[in-house]
Amino acid sequence: MNFEGILAQLTAMAVALVVAPLLVGWVNMCRAWLQNRSAPSLLLPFRMLHKLFWKESIVANEATAIFRLAPYVVFGCMLLASMIIPTLSTNLPLAPAADAIALVGLFALARLFLSLAAMDIGTAFGSLGARREMLVGFLAEPAFLMVLFTASLISSSTSLATIVSSLAHRELTILPSLAFAGVAFTMISLAENARVPVDNPATHLELTMIHEALILEYSGRHLALMEWAAALKLFAYSCAGLALFFPWGIAEAYDHRAVLFALPVLLAKLAVGGFLLALIETALAKMRIFRVPEFLATAFLLGVLALLVHLLLGA
């Protein structure tokens, strides 16, 4: 591990920490525009985090150490995930420690702690949220892996850095397997990030909520960490999608100019992606919770189909 590698890793971390709340702010801004409202500031998520960190944390009487530890573990997992996914360059010293499968395992670990923390206090909403979160997870996780497997088979590697560099070097043609995988990935990202057809981040209606039910009992710095972790998760998923389907512009070796160039490219790609997300959220209505398994099973089958198409056509 050389100095430049460490620098690249720290840069990736700093970019993730800063850009993730900005992305959330940007999506909210776009959605407000699309819905003909006046938009909040782009920096609103930062102000929110700042406010929450200064507030006192109220912890339920019954809460155990799991409840207080979970925000840190979830935040740590999400930060590590966004450090493993190639955002600016593929030269990341931490990347060999975890490949695509371990990345999914990392998200699953965060989900486990999130769900356990929600069940910890023993409120009806907490266990409801945990159950629904695990329901989303057990279908979305394999679907995500199918997408990653398709990319792995194309580049015959499960290492994210190798996948990105080999996908970036192929000709500019649309592979049918990647097209299926792309649709599946979009559906999973919506579900995993508690976005509209599956969950609504802006609601507290008990019949519909998933993510909000999980973090209902959190306040102060714990809530801030949970919110930041959610933003990091959105950032990580977006970057994973960009790395898999639009890998162009990610610097390959640690080349200063390429990295300087990579940052504006990443921001531009995220801006477009965020706008599309806001568009989806505006155009679609939230579905009933009983329909979610069907939605996710479709994503899983699309992922399997992508794998099959690749194996059949070799493309």
């Binding site: 109220i58 912890v59 339920a60 206090i121 209902l216």
Partner: peptide
């Protein structure tokens, strides 16, 4: 940290 009954 302040301990309180759960909000729910």
């Amino acid at each position: 940290v302040r301990r309180a009954p759960p909000w729910d």
